[in-house]
Amino acid sequence: MADATAVAAAASSKDPAVGLAAVASLRTLLESLEELQVGNARAQGWSWQRIAEVMKVSRQAVHKKYRRLGF
């Protein structure tokens, strides 16, 4: 069973269609999670500066991206 999984993983990693689809899905998932967490942080009174520091991005970047969502 473990072998089969390993073989499947090895095969998929070589197929660009599979690998790229995984990355695209991961990006969408990341965006959703980021949006949820930033919204939650703002709801709990966090400043943009503090959010930016924890996320290791600039304050401007996170503010510009999420301000229009009303956070």
Partner: peptide, 23 residues
């Protein structure tokens, strides 16, 4: 591709159902 694809994520070891459950 616009919504996360559970099968695509499974190929890199991510269980979307589990992520959704935790969220």
């Amino acid at each position: 591709g616009d919504a996360p694809d559970p099968e695509a994520l499974a190929t890199i070891g991510i269980d979307l159902d589990e992520v959704r459950r935790q969220v």
